[in-house]
Amino acid sequence: MLEHLLPPLNDHNLPWMDTIHPIVVHFVIAMALISVLFDFIGVVTGRRALFEVSWWNLLFATSAIFVAIMFGQVEAGLANPYGDARNILNIHSTIGWSLAGVLSVLTGWRYVLRAKDPLSLPLVFLGADSLLAALVVVQVFLGDKLIWVYGLHTVKVVEAMRAGLV
């Protein structure tokens, strides 16, 4: 009915040149993990600059994850996952939204902690940081599996799906 209003899908089964989600999400991964690492190093060394770098990385990771989720949801909807890829994609999506919540809560919490004392973090916050890092690692593993094992949005897999082979 409204299909004529949508752009045609290319050989990656996308309306744009290539997947955008992995590009944006790599910024989130790097910034979140650097934030956690610098929190721990900052606590050990007491250097203010490390806490500043950690704070800004956490803030930008929180902003960027919503862009990554937006593109991820669109691209997941166009992926036509098959077999176990469906379950992995569902778990990946759920953890992605959970990470957005975790990052948002940590950023708000960190804002309050930073206003009180910019040179210290409580152990419970470092525990939450560790949970964030663990979730990011699991998410990376699942995302890698969707691309490197199941080949979602790769030309060969899209061709096989279109030919009814998958």
Rank of each mutant, 00 (worst) to 15 (best):
V105W: 12
G108M: 07
R86N: 13
L103G: 03
S104H: 02
W97F: 12
R114E: 09
S98M: 10
S130R: 04
L132H: 05
P118H: 00
N90S: 14
S98L: 11
V124P: 00
N87T: 15
S130F: 13
L135A: 10
Y111H: 15
N90D: 14
G101N: 04
H92G: 13
S120V: 02
A85V: 01
L121R: 06
L132E: 06
R86V: 14
K116R: 12
I95E: 11
N90K: 12
G83V: 01
Y82G: 03
I95D: 10
N90M: 15
S120K: 09
A134H: 05
A128P: 08
A133K: 06
P122Q: 10
L119A: 10
L119V: 08
G83N: 07
Y82F: 08
A134D: 07
V102W: 00
N90P: 01
R86E: 12
V124A: 09
I88Q: 11
G108P: 07
P118T: 01
V136S: 05
A133T: 03
G108H: 06
V105C: 09
A85C: 01
Y111R: 10
D129W: 00
I88M: 15
Y82E: 13
D129T: 00
L132C: 09
T107P: 06
V112K: 13
L89E: 10
